[in-house]
Amino acid sequence: MTYLFLVTAIALLTSVGQMSLVDLAILNGVICLIAFIIDSSLFVKRYEIQSVCYERIENITPENKDTLIADLKLRTGLNVVAVDIEHIDFLRDVAQLKVSYLAER
């Protein structure tokens, strides 16, 4: 939707604008450059999500959150920043976790 709005705005500026062609080209270029910078990962950290079946059920309690994250970092080698519990199976002593980690660039 954002790109649709940008294309519409650029089209309106180009058709109605009372500027020279050089000024319009510079303005359109600046608008496109700003959209590219905002959409790129230059200033924003990109996170990815991975689903993990985790068997150390004692670590999924809120008081062991730091232990859980440290264990996941050690076992997966990923820079884990957050963990959400999707499902707990007490019969098999496993939990399905949604692990958020910093993506490699």
Results as ranks from 00 to 15, higher is better:
residue 97 L to K: 00
residue 74 L to S: 04
residue 25 A to M: 08
residue 28 N to H: 07
residue 50 Q to G: 10
residue 4 L to I: 09
residue 32 C to Q: 05
residue 21 L to Y: 11
residue 2 T to W: 10
residue 18 Q to E: 12
residue 88 I to P: 02
residue 103 A to F: 06
residue 105 R to K: 08
residue 37 I to T: 10
residue 53 C to S: 15
residue 49 I to C: 10
residue 71 D to H: 02
residue 80 V to I: 01
residue 105 R to C: 00
residue 45 K to N: 13
residue 96 Q to V: 07
residue 85 I to P: 04
residue 32 C to P: 08
residue 81 V to H: 01
residue 33 L to R: 05
residue 55 E to N: 13
residue 45 K to S: 14
residue 54 Y to G: 03
residue 57 I to K: 00
residue 78 L to T: 01
residue 97 L to G: 03
residue 79 N to F: 02
residue 95 A to S: 06
residue 63 E to S: 10
residue 22 V to I: 04
residue 40 S to G: 06
residue 23 D to M: 09
residue 67 T to K: 07
residue 63 E to T: 12
residue 59 N to K: 02
residue 43 F to A: 03
residue 18 Q to C: 13
residue 36 F to I: 15
residue 40 S to N: 05
residue 84 D to W: 00
residue 80 V to A: 00
residue 45 K to Y: 06
residue 19 M to T: 12
residue 70 A to R: 13
residue 64 N to R: 06
residue 36 F to D: 10
residue 104 E to N: 13
residue 12 L to Q: 14
residue 86 E to W: 03
residue 2 T to E: 15
residue 51 S to A: 13
residue 21 L to N: 09
residue 27 L to Q: 10
residue 86 E to S: 08
residue 56 R to M: 07
residue 17 G to E: 00
residue 47 Y to Q: 03
residue 40 S to A: 04
residue 86 E to H: 02
residue 5 F to R: 09
residue 63 E to L: 14
residue 85 I to G: 00
residue 20 S to N: 07
residue 12 L to T: 14
residue 16 V to T: 08
residue 44 V to Y: 08
residue 100 S to A: 14
residue 36 F to T: 07
residue 29 G to S: 12
residue 97 L to V: 09
residue 6 L to Y: 15
residue 57 I to A: 01
residue 93 D to C: 15
residue 101 Y to C: 01
residue 40 S to H: 03
residue 47 Y to F: 13
residue 87 H to A: 14
residue 35 A to T: 05
residue 31 I to F: 15
residue 104 E to H: 15
residue 20 S to W: 05
residue 64 N to W: 01
residue 29 G to D: 05
residue 75 R to S: 13
residue 73 K to E: 05
residue 81 V to G: 00
residue 85 I to S: 03
residue 48 E to Q: 12
residue 95 A to V: 03
residue 83 V to G: 00
residue 51 S to P: 09
residue 100 S to Y: 13
residue 19 M to F: 08
residue 85 I to W: 02
residue 87 H to C: 07
residue 97 L to H: 01
residue 50 Q to E: 10
residue 27 L to V: 14
residue 80 V to M: 00
residue 38 I to M: 12
residue 22 V to P: 10
residue 20 S to M: 04
residue 26 I to V: 15
residue 19 M to P: 04
residue 41 S to F: 13
residue 8 T to Y: 12
residue 61 T to R: 13
residue 17 G to F: 00
residue 99 V to G: 01
residue 30 V to T: 10
residue 48 E to P: 11
residue 23 D to P: 02
residue 80 V to D: 00
residue 47 Y to I: 11
residue 41 S to E: 11
residue 2 T to H: 04
residue 82 A to Y: 05
residue 104 E to Y: 10
residue 46 R to N: 15
residue 82 A to E: 06
residue 58 E to N: 09
residue 94 V to H: 05
residue 29 G to E: 04
residue 60 I to G: 03
residue 69 I to T: 03
residue 94 V to I: 12
residue 13 L to T: 11
residue 51 S to H: 07
residue 7 V to L: 14
residue 11 A to L: 15
residue 67 T to R: 12
